[in-house]
Design a protein around this nucleic acid. Structure first.
Lengths: 143, 143
DNA sequence: TACTATAATAGAATTATTCCAAGATGATAA
DNA sequence: TTATCATCTTGGAATAATTCTATTATAGTA
């Protein structure tokens, strides 16, 4: 908590209570929340928080490389405070996103005809599947 | 063209002029269009086409496995009529999506702790970078 | 403690996508 | 060839995600 304040102050963040709430919520969070998830969670403590504040803050964090925007879900963006290179898997049924810690970098060589035309800045691998919970339940649950 | 009609009739499609327009537009199309791209293109020939028709048709195609929904772009969905397994790269600057034909399947093994909990249904690899055009131009173009 | 740049807020605006009800039209069978 | 019907098309409304704007509030600093 002290660490969080120190860290983000050094990054030039103006630390308002709402922002601290968001930063605490995200710290070590592995649930890959959406803007909506963040909003409803923070609202328990700060009932006046607005979506604009959530989006402003995640944008500021993204611009400073403190969180990563995840595109695995066609329906909406998820955010990941873990910026260590890793990948994801999403359950087709409940749409929960989980981490995949594996290093595929050596294997992901681009064909020459592509690499000759692109200066590559990054990559990510998305997996899809049915999680154990949904499989056991019969696989027709939602969200 | 005859082939298109035959193929989709066999798939149970009711072939209206608008649909044929969309199917022709998509046939062999490697530009990874968005719903918007499809809409404005078809509208040249069928000025009354609606977004609802575009979305209905791409949904029907997706449900039958005839096109693939691409999530590489956080801003909007792109569609790809090429259902042969492949991957994509997007230019960070102009946001153009291109194909990457490479087979990484052997390399993309999931860690046991994940594979034990998921029945995997698929995966895809997304690359990001700056394309030659944008690099040469100085890299500040939009869209 | 006062100042100033930045943040928070409500709400409107934008953009992407889906839904709905009404009318239109392909495909089929008589 | 035509009548029938299931399905498609359409405009527009509805929903959802995200961004923008103008105003007010406040954290950080001098």
């Amino acid at each position: 908590m002290e660490n969080i304040i120190k860290k983000y102050r050094e990054l030039g963040f103006k630390l308002t209570p709402q922002r601290l709430g968001i930063l605490q919520y995200l710290d070590g969070n592995t649930s890959h929340p959406t803007a909506e998830d963040i909003f409803y969670s923070i609202r328990k403590t700060y009932p006046t928080i607005s979506f604009a504040t959530v989006y402003n803050t995640v944008q500021a964090l993204r611009d400073r490389g403190e969180i990563v925007e995840i595109t695995i879900d066609p329906a909406k963006k998820h955010f990941d405070p873990n910026t260590y290179p890793h990948h994801h898997i999403m359950c087709d049924t409940c749409r929960k996103v989980e981490d995949v810690f594996a290093d595929y970098s050596a294997a992901l060589k681009l064909p020459a005809e592509v690499s000759s035309r692109f200066t590559v800045t990054g990559n990510h691998v998305d997996f899809y599947g049915i999680c154990a919970r949904c499989r056991d339940k019969g696989g027709s649950e939602k969200i």
